[in-house]
Amino acid sequence: MDKIFFAELLVSVLIVAGGIFSLVGSFGLIKLKDLMTRLHAPTKATTLGVGSTLLASMVYFLVFESKISMHEILILLFLFLTAPITAHFVAKAYLLRHTDPQKDLPQTQRPHGWSTFDAPPASPTKPPSPKADG
């Protein structure tokens, strides 16, 4: 009886936390002033929101339906792998269209500039990073 109660409590807390984090992430999208600060809100707050919702679903099916459900882990892994990549792409698109590499950005402290603006060096002394050609 107590076990069921604690499972219910856990699922409820996780669902409520997920809802709150998703709401805060979307609220940050409205509240913050420019795109780069806005980018922080959905990449972090929303990821944890979805994460705790998925955990809630996993616990629920494990305890009340006695099924071990693995799809949630897959979705969670996929989201955690792809969130940085989408953030990186959105940031690059924003950099290209709305910033001036000389004025707004810090210097690379390297002979080459940032890859959104400069072509990679011609001699392949080192394989370019997979993100550099994005």
């Binding site: 780069m36 980018l39 922080h40 990449t43 940085p84 953030a87 990186h88 940031a91 690059k92 950099l95 690379t108 402290q109 390297r110 002979p111 080459h112 500039g113 940032w114 890859s115 959104t116 400069d118 072509a119 990679p120 060096p121 080192k126 370019p128 990073s129 993100k131 550099a132």
Partner: peptide, 12 residues
């Protein structure tokens, strides 16, 4: 923190 770009030679 959000990583936004890589330098063209991949070192920053």
């Amino acid at each position: 923190t959000v990583s936004s770009d890589l330098s063209a030679d991949g070192r920053a």
